[in-house]
Structure formats: structure tokens, C-alpha cells
């Protein structure tokens, strides 16, 4: 049985219980520090370009072409993966996998750590995952793995990720890709 942690019945020390909250508008979060968006974008690009097995986890909001914004984001995420030399593993829905998940090719919010363990992922971007499932998944990953998690969020961000960008739409993704190219050139990769 799990020991009672700082979050009472949750055995995990959620970021909120350590005083970390989502960044204000126009800002980003790096670990527990509120920083300018561009600084966070540079750090994210650096982490993704330098850590082992960097992976992007696109969620249902970008995997399915249900509106023009989702279609545009899909193109940009593909481009982002190429720039960051990152693998992509889809989180295509939130149903628990029965009887067993294929952790090599898919990720599920009910046990996201399995995919990260299996593929030895040291940096990961969550994008297009609905808020509550992103919250659950990021908490588990934060407690169960040493993966540097990055939330690129269309709303107010996620405090349980190591780095959070908020209000990210296609124009912001374009900006991030541009910065990632610059960082890549600086790192001579």
C-alpha cells in the first residue's frame, strides 16, 4: 500500500502542494520559476535537442482534423519533430488499454510512465492533451520517472510539467519552431 504523501491520500507530492502554480498570462514556467515565454522556449528546445530519446506526445486535440486550427497545428508539430529530432508517440484517446498497452508505440494517461520507462525517454512534450488528462498524466510522470516534461498548452498551462508554455496556438508554435532552429544552430547539431 502506498504511503500517505504531502497531498494526503495521494502518495505523490503534486507541484501545487509545493507552492508551484501555473504562470500568469504572457509568461511561462520553468520548474518553479516564472520566466518570459522566449526564455522558456529556448530552454525547452535545448532540453529536447540534448536529452536522450526526446519524444513528442500529441493528444487528440491535434491528432484529429476536426477544425482548421487542429489541421494547422498538426503540420507544425510534424515540422517541430523534425527540427527537434524527436520521435512521436500518439496519445490518441484516453480509454484504458485492455489487456495490455503496447508501450513502444502508444501512450495512455492512465499509465503514462510505462511508455516513458519502456522507451527510456528523458524529455517529452505533451501537446493537444485535454487539461484533466494532462494533469493526471504529468503528475504520474513527475513522480515515477526522471523525464523532463514539457506542456505546450492552449489554455493556462500545467504546474506539474517541468516547463510550461501557456496560450499556445499555431502562431506561437511557429515562433517556437523558429527559436528551436536557432538553438539547434547554436548547439551545432
Amino acid at each position: 500500500m502506498a504511503n500517505q504523501g504531502p497531498a494526503y491520500y495521494s502518495p505523490y507530492p503534486a507541484a501545487l502542494y509545493e507552492g508551484v502554480i501555473t504562470p500568469p498570462e504572457g509568461k511561462a514556467l520553468l520548474l518553479e520559476e516564472v520566466v518570459d515565454e522566449e526564455i522558456a522556449m529556448r530552454e525547452i528546445a535545448k532540453q529536447m535537442l540534448t536529452k536522450e530519446n526526446a519524444t513528442i506526445f500529441p493528444g487528440p486535440q491535434v491528432l484529429y482534423g476536426y477544425n482548421e486550427e487542429a489541421k494547422k497545428k498538426a503540420t507544425l508539430i510534424k515540422e517541430m519533430a523534425e527540427v527537434l529530432n524527436a520521435k512521436m508517440i500518439p496519445m490518441y484517446d484516453y480509454r484504458p488499454k485492455y489487456p495490455k498497452i503496447d508501450a513502444e508505440v502508444e501512450i495512455n494517461p492512465n499509465h503514462p510512465n510505462l511508455t516513458i520507462w519502456h522507451n527510456n525517454i528523458k524529455a517529452a512534450i505533451f501537446i493537444g492533451v485535454h487539461c484533466h488528462y494532462a494533469n493526471v498524466a504529468l503528475k504520474m510522470v513527475r513522480c515515477e520517472t526522471d523525464c523532463y516534461t514539457i506542456a505546450i498548452c492552449g489554455l493556462s498551462g500545467h504546474e506539474d510539467a517541468m516547463a510550461t508554455l501557456r496560450d499556445q496556438h499555431s502562431s506561437e508554435l511557429e515562433k517556437f519552431i523558429k527559436i528551436a532552429r536557432e538553438v539547434k544552430a547554436e548547439l551545432k547539431l
Binding site: P58, V62, L63, Y64, G65, Y66, A70, K71, A74, T75, I77, K78, M88, I89, P90, Y92, D93, D102, V105, E106
Partner: peptide, 19 residues
Amino acid sequence: IDIYKINPEFRDIMPKEII
């Protein structure tokens, strides 16, 4: 139905059951 229309960029990474 549109909600299950996979963006072409991700078709190669989606499992067969979703396709």
C-alpha cells in the same frame, strides 16, 4: 465522421485500431 478523421501528418504513427 470528422472527429475520427486523423490528420495526415500523424497517420503513420497511429495504431491500426484507430485507423
